[in-house]
């Protein structure tokens, strides 16, 4: 499937930086037909957290499956968190569904999926 996604930094020194990725351009990795965007401190991650010392080398991933986006923590040391309605956050264990526009935190850095869908 031809997929693209836009992910924005929502805090830290890269706050406001928008990263646009698409499978067509060879971004991301594919695993058994699932397109995966990786977050981490190592530079081969699609979302490279070069300034976040709280991020693990391969910290978390976002992928598209069953017509929606999922956030998965990759056994990171400091955790991946999802913002809840009541101004609180919940630690992600395993995979959780995530909505466009919903804030999540990898290490100390907040992100949001601006836009993302299969290309028609």
């Amino acid at each position: 499937m031809d997929l693209s996604v836009e992910i924005m930094f929502m805090s830290g020194v890269e706050d406001g930086h928008l990263i646009a990725l698409s499978a067509e351009n060879g971004d991301g990795v594919s695993n058994e037909g699932v397109w995966i965007i990786r977050f981490g401190r190592k530079e081969d991650n699609e979302i490279w957290l070069r300034y976040d010392s709280f991020a693990s080398r391969y910290h978390a991933r976002v992928y598209f499956r069953a017509q929606r986006w999922w956030l998965e923590d990759c056994n990171s040391k400091n955790g991946t968190f999802l913002e809840l309605d009541d101004d609180d956050e919940a630690r992600v264990s395993g995979s959780v569904p995530i909505d466009l526009g919903q804030l999540f935190r990898v290490g100390r850095t907040w992100f949001r999926i601006q836009d993302g869908a299969p290309n028609e």
Binding site: V13, E14, D15, G16, L18, Y51, S53
Partner: peptide, 23 residues
């Protein structure tokens, strides 16, 4: 509370503006 405190370890020079602050 939302930003948290940073660490004394500096990872970049100067005091750059964030992309959002630039915007």
């Amino acid at each position: 509370r939302r930003t948290g405190k940073g660490t004394s370890q500096r990872m970049f020079a100067g005091a750059p503006y964030t992309p959002r602050a630039d915007m």
